[in-house]
Simulated assay, not measured.
Amino acid sequence: MTLTGWLLFILTVQVIHFLSTWKLYVAAGRQAWEAGIPIYNAVILMKIINRPWWWVILLFFPIVNLIMIPVVWVETIRSFGFNSAKHTFLVLITLGLYIFYISYTQNLEHIVDRSRKPRTTTGEWTSSILFAIVAATLVHTYFMQPFTIPTSSLEKTLLVGDYLFVSKIHYGARAPMTSVALPMLHDRVPLSGSKSYYSGLEFPYFRIPGFQNIKHNDIVVFSWPVDEYVDIGPPPSGYMYKPIDKKSNYVKRCVALPGDSLEIKNGYVHINGIKNDLPDRAKLMFYMAVTSTEPLDYSIMS
């Protein structure tokens, strides 16, 4: 989506928010105009629903906000006495538009200093699970991510089946580009094999500044640039567009950096005319081709 498209989308969301909630703001003792000022209206809403101000920050984290926004919908209607399971279901199934109905058809009475503690055991479990998902998604997306080594290309350093945690803060975490995706899943849903994201709403590429630059021979995890999603379903089959953050993850050794010259002489990598000096725990991979007019004696090769 282009920048203009995103601006129009944000403007539309703000208009919907204002029209659906300004009566709630007034009922809570605030001014109607406070519902129409971006970001400020979210801060005021947190005060109305008696939730911490830092929830506003979570609303701006991609993927995390897909969890937090429905939570805010539910907390908003409960702050005005609509606590039943029916009201919760309706506000979720209508993607928050049920708040329109409440604002314009119901008597609004704000519950001041509403308790933050869930009323039921189910509510406590739900709150705990949602908190765990939000925390895990933040860590997984912006701080570190677990990987499993699938191939032998880095043998002697990393073996097939090795588990490792990869830091994202050293080089700078890449913000998600897919705005709608299932938390902590990459490109597919386990078992079903279906896509775990919607590529119709994409953020522009953005990387949070890191505190360390990539050095020669660093082992790095990156998105395979030419990767595409293979459609193995019914016709028409083929390849589909795949966002950068949903391309397959590869782990390799970085032997050259931008501006370097790279040559391969007699099977060895030379950087800027100098033979690359690999760490002790690294092993080159060589392939040999054998041509023979006689059948090979495999016993001497075992």
Rank of each mutant, 00 (worst) to 15 (best):
131 F>E: 09
265 K>C: 02
256 A>H: 15
52 P>M: 05
265 K>S: 10
14 Q>H: 15
153 S>I: 04
262 L>Q: 01
207 R>W: 04
16 I>W: 08
162 D>Q: 05
300 I>T: 14
266 N>M: 04
129 I>R: 11
213 N>F: 13
93 I>T: 09
277 D>P: 02
169 I>F: 15
204 P>S: 12
118 P>D: 14
65 N>C: 11
74 V>C: 01
87 H>M: 02
142 Y>W: 09
252 K>L: 07
227 D>S: 13
290 V>K: 11
143 F>H: 10
252 K>P: 02
173 A>R: 09
139 V>H: 04
115 S>Q: 08
40 Y>C: 03
35 A>P: 01
235 P>R: 15
282 A>R: 11
31 Q>K: 12
123 G>P: 14
15 V>P: 05
64 V>G: 03
136 A>R: 02
260 D>A: 02
269 V>H: 02
29 G>F: 04
30 R>T: 01
180 V>F: 14
54 W>P: 00
218 D>H: 02
201 L>W: 15
108 L>N: 01
178 T>C: 14
244 I>W: 13
22 W>S: 04
14 Q>E: 14
178 T>F: 03
236 P>R: 03
292 S>T: 15
146 P>M: 03
111 I>G: 08
24 L>D: 03
21 T>F: 10
287 Y>P: 05
239 Y>F: 10
2 T>A: 10
184 M>E: 06
147 F>G: 02
60 F>T: 09
223 S>E: 12
292 S>V: 01
292 S>M: 07
68 M>T: 07
299 S>Q: 11
98 Y>D: 00
43 V>G: 00
105 T>Q: 13
193 G>E: 08
19 L>H: 02
188 R>E: 13
294 E>R: 11
82 F>W: 03
41 N>M: 03
68 M>F: 09
116 R>L: 13
245 D>R: 02
272 N>L: 03
125 W>P: 05
4 T>G: 13
153 S>H: 06
169 I>G: 06
39 I>F: 04
98 Y>M: 06
151 T>D: 05
35 A>D: 02
229 Y>G: 00
93 I>D: 02
215 K>W: 10
60 F>A: 00
257 L>Q: 00
85 A>Y: 14
121 T>Q: 12
119 R>M: 15
85 A>F: 13
155 E>Y: 05
59 L>P: 01
165 F>I: 13
281 R>L: 13
